[in-house]
């Protein structure tokens, strides 16, 4: 696949509801006990990465990447019951030595169309 051709692309928006079941499944998958999760006011900061599975991201399709850096920035914390409109954009693709370096960003907005969070990722893939 020529990933460079997707530079600048943005996925279709997807609405994601934050449920208690989603939070509990995430907590169990990250080695957190049930009681500790019950006491949280907001969802853990790295949780939005699991939203990728609900979204169609053509430049990731069938590809294997190494995750190098990740940054989450929150304007508001996320809580159970929130409904988020999410998109992913491929901001840049650079060739660095034998690797392609992808800069992409998942963002989530609330029902008032306000930015809730941004999740920027730097991914590496061996150039073909």
């Amino acid at each position: 696949m020529n990933i460079k051709q997707w530079e600048g692309a943005v996925t279709l928006p997807v609405s994601i509801k934050i449920t208690k079941e989603l939070l509990m499944a995430y907590a169990a998958a990250t080695g957190t006990d049930h009681t500790a999760t019950e006491e949280l006011k907001h969802v853990p900061p790295a949780l939005p990465m699991i939203f990728y599975q609900y979204m169609s991201v053509p430049w990731l399709d069938g590809q294997s990447f190494i995750h190098k850096e990740q940054t989450f920035v929150y304007e508001y914390p996320i809580s159970i019951g929130d409904l988020l409109q999410c998109t992913i954009s491929l901001n840049s693709v650079e060739k660095r030595r034998q690797f392609l370096v992808l800069h992409q960003e998942l963002i989530g907005k609330n029902e008032q169309n306000q930015m809730v969070f941004s999740a920027k990722s730097i991914l590496l893939k061996e150039a073909e």
């Binding site: 990740q70 940054t71 929150y74």
Partner: peptide
């Protein structure tokens, strides 16, 4: 700390 008086504004990590 989160159940005290804080929320997480930003979180970054290099692997």
């Amino acid at each position: 700390l989160l159940n005290d008086s804080f929320w997480i504004k930003q979180y970054n990590m290099k692997f």
